[in-house]
Amino acid sequence: MNAVHEFVPPAVNVEEKLFQNRYRVDAGRPHIKVNNPALCLTCALKPCTVCCPAGCWRAEEGGGIDLVVDGCLECGTCRLVCDAGNVDWNYPRGGFGVLFKFG
């Protein structure tokens, strides 16, 4: 019925989006940690790197994970999508983290 048409996933720079947000970063006190980084090496799919809406989780070349929580939107996705339960997730200290202007 229709000519074959292929969807091309858009290239998106999420940092540019996050740049519009307000944050009060709790320097040196990340509210999310990896329990056991070695476990990430055995994880093939790394759903955290796909599902995190802020791109906080990046796959490293060696098969590990690089986590930078500064742009975190505090949704809680990474905690739930990790099948190994390897995410130590807490809310930031009161007043810190993302400060939504509009929500």
Binding site: P9, P10, L45, V50, C52, P53, V81
Partner: peptide
């Protein structure tokens, strides 16, 4: 749904960009 998102490769911001475009 998160159970669907974790099984594929598009990021949430790519989905949103797809809608906006």
């Amino acid at each position: 749904m998160l159970s669907d998102m974790k099984r594929q490769t598009l990021t949430p911001y790519q989905l949103l960009e797809g809608l906006k475009r």
